[in-house]
Simulated assay, not measured.
Amino acid sequence: MDTPAELGDFLRTRRARLQPEDVGLVSYGARRRVPGLRREELAQLAGVSVAYYTRLEQGQSGNASEGVLDAIARALRLDEDEHAHLRDLAKPRSRDRRQASRAEHARPGVRQLIAAVEGVAAVALDRRGEVLAWNPHAHALLAGHLDPGGPDRPADRPNLSRMLFLDPHTRELYTRWEEEAKRSVASLRLLAGRHADDRRLAELVGELTMKSPEFAALWARHPVHNCASGVKHFHHPLVGPMELSFEMMQMPDGSGQRVLMYSAEPNSASEAALRLLAGFAVRRGTGPRGGAGPADGGRPETGLSGETGLPGDTAAKYPARHD
C-alpha cells in the first residue's frame, strides 16, 4: 500500500472531524473552504511549523520524531488505537515481503486448542482474516453453507471480511450488519497500516473496494479500531437469534495469527442455540463424532429434514455431505 498517501488521508480525516471551538481556538466566522481544522490551526496546536506539518501530511517527511507524532496525536485528540496507527503510517517498519505474501497454516497446537474447547465457536485466522482452521461450532455458526474443509486449501479459504461484504448468506447472518461492517473495516485499516507491505492484504482491500460500494464508503472514512472483544448479534437460519460475546487473542509468536472465540451467557437461549448448532454439525458428519446425534446425545427436535437434520426450508442452503 502507498503508506505516504495513507498517512495524508488519515490526517485529513482526523482534521475534518474537529472544529476550532472543539480545541479552544477562536473562529471569526470566515467562510471555511474545508471542513474541520485548517493545517495552520493543527500545526499551531501541535507546536510545529505549518511547512513541516504540510510536508508530513503530503508524505514528504519520513523522519518525524516520536515527540512530534505524539504532539500531533494530542492535537487531533486521537485515541490509543489511532495514535498507534499514526505511528505505523509515519514510521513504517521494514519486513520480509516474501513472508508477507506466503500462505500460512495454523500450528498443530492451535488446531488442537480450538478442537478441544467445549461450547465455544473457535476460529484460527491469519492477519488478513483468512480462516486457517475452525471447530464444528464455528463452521456451523459462520459458514454452514461452505465446505468445512475449505481452510485446509489455501486457494479456497474463506475470508471473514470478504464473506461479510460479498456473501449474501453472511450478510443475512448479522442482525446489525452495519455495525459489523464498521467494525470489520476499522480493524482492517489498523492491520493495513501495521503491514503496509503485505501484497495479499492490499489485494483484499482492492477487491472489496471494487466490488462493494459499502466497503469503499467506509474505507474512505479511515476508521481505526482494535476490535479485540465485544458482543455480536446473529440471526442464524437454523436456530434464530443469538447474542454471543467474542474475544480475539493474538498469538505471541509475531506471526499476526489470531484465535477468535464466540461464547454465550451460561444457561441462556443463545447457549442452547450454539449447542444445537454443534449438534447439527455432528449430524452432518463435520463434527468430531462423525454422524452421532447432537452434542447432548439426543435426537434433534422434530421438523428437521431426515437427510440433513436441518429444518426443511433451510436444508437446501445447508446440504447433506456424503464424504
Results as ranks from 00 to 15, higher is better:
5 A>I: 03
14 R>N: 06
18 L>F: 09
21 E>Y: 04
27 S>D: 15
32 R>V: 01
39 R>Q: 03
41 E>C: 00
47 G>M: 08
55 R>D: 13
61 S>V: 11
63 N>I: 05
71 A>V: 01
75 A>I: 00
89 L>Y: 04
92 P>R: 01
95 R>K: 07
95 R>E: 12
98 R>K: 09
99 Q>R: 13
101 S>V: 11
110 V>L: 09
119 G>D: 09
123 V>H: 03
123 V>C: 04
128 R>E: 03
135 N>C: 06
139 H>Q: 15
143 A>E: 02
144 G>K: 03
147 D>A: 06
155 A>M: 12
161 S>H: 11
162 R>Q: 05
163 M>V: 08
174 Y>H: 14
175 T>G: 08
176 R>C: 07
178 E>F: 02
179 E>P: 03
180 E>H: 14
191 L>N: 07
191 L>G: 07
194 R>Y: 10
195 H>R: 12
198 D>I: 07
204 L>M: 03
205 V>S: 01
208 L>S: 03
213 P>V: 10
216 A>N: 10
222 H>L: 02
236 H>L: 10
241 P>V: 06
244 L>D: 06
245 S>F: 11
250 Q>S: 12
251 M>W: 13
253 D>Y: 03
255 S>D: 07
256 G>A: 01
260 L>Q: 12
268 S>C: 09
268 S>P: 11
269 A>C: 02
270 S>Y: 12
272 A>S: 15
274 L>Q: 10
278 A>L: 14
279 G>W: 03
285 G>R: 02
288 P>L: 07
289 R>P: 01
295 A>F: 09
297 G>Y: 10
300 P>D: 10
306 G>V: 05
320 A>C: 08
